[in-house]
Design a protein around this nucleic acid. Structure first.
Lengths: 140, 140
DNA sequence: TGATAATAGTTGAAAATGTAACTAACAAGA
DNA sequence: TCTTGTTAGTTACATTTTCAACTATTATCA
């Protein structure tokens, strides 16, 4: 039989994703009491600027109920604020507070360092191949 | 700012893992009403032969409570059976039923096909680089 | 205009997961 | 033997996630 579990891409991706998130998760959990979805929402706002919950849903491919709850939690802890949009009163534009930006800055620095650790010993050319293939799979 | 979200490995891994699992998950869910952990337990038994829950915990790095519940579910749906071990009555050896083996065979074929789809257009050398790096990150 | 559909976001209940505590069996040393 | 510790596996409870309504607003089109 030729097919090993560690050849199976969804499995391998899941294991790698879990391992990669684990250490970093401890950071944002311990420092800011954040959940993973909250960190991802924060990251999107920090990296790409203010946007609506719907934009985050689309870009991050996170379900809208998760985003809704993450936004509520981040708002409660004063990491972001909502602003009504006049031309469409269903929507609310989200933006980070100063505190949210600080958290973003600190966590991003940690994330970059963490990335380097994960790819220790991997030639940059190979790392780029990995990113490329992952983007394809993720549909990005 | 130099750091793009799609360069950030844990993020990229998560997105790819989620996208990769999605379609396949629909298969085992729709056909067999299986959860992800259940499919993974089934896979281990189908691929590597009978073993105890503890062995699966170690090999698959799934938490023992998840394995315990998956085993109970698979047993309830007659995909596997337990057998007591005389020399250590704490342990139970698990093995697939004929029905379990059928499911394994069918799902494995689907898994292989799914893998090929995910890697469409990716040279085999690159695919191997990806698997290698993912194994490193996952600690496999 | 008015009816129907679509969209943004929220909420409640059900399902799944994680954590810790638990039972039962074995192990090892005084 | 008796105590203490370890291991296999299960269960209970709290937290998260998922799924299916639901509200409120905007869009479409006869």
């Amino acid at each position: 039989m030729s097919f090993d579990l560690t050849d199976f891409l969804p499995y391998l991706l899941n294991q790698a994703a879990e391992a990669a998130s684990l250490e970093f998760q401890r950071e944002y959990k311990a420092r800011y009491g954040m959940l993973r979805t909250e960190w991802r929402v924060l990251f999107h706002l920090g990296r790409y600027g203010e946007m609506s919950a719907r934009d985050i849903v689309e870009r991050a491919m996170i379900h809208k109920t998760k985003v809704s709850r993450a936004v509520a939690a981040l708002e409660g802890r004063r990491f972001l604020t909502r602003r009504e949009v006049e031309e469409d009163r269903r929507r609310e534009v989200l933006s980070l507070t100063a505190q949210g930006r600080d958290a973003f800055t600190e966590l991003t620095a940690l994330a970059e360092a963490h990335d380097a650790t994960l790819l220790r010993g991997v030639p940059e050319a190979d790392a780029e191949v990995v990113r490329q293939v992952l983007r394809q799979i993720a549909g990005l």
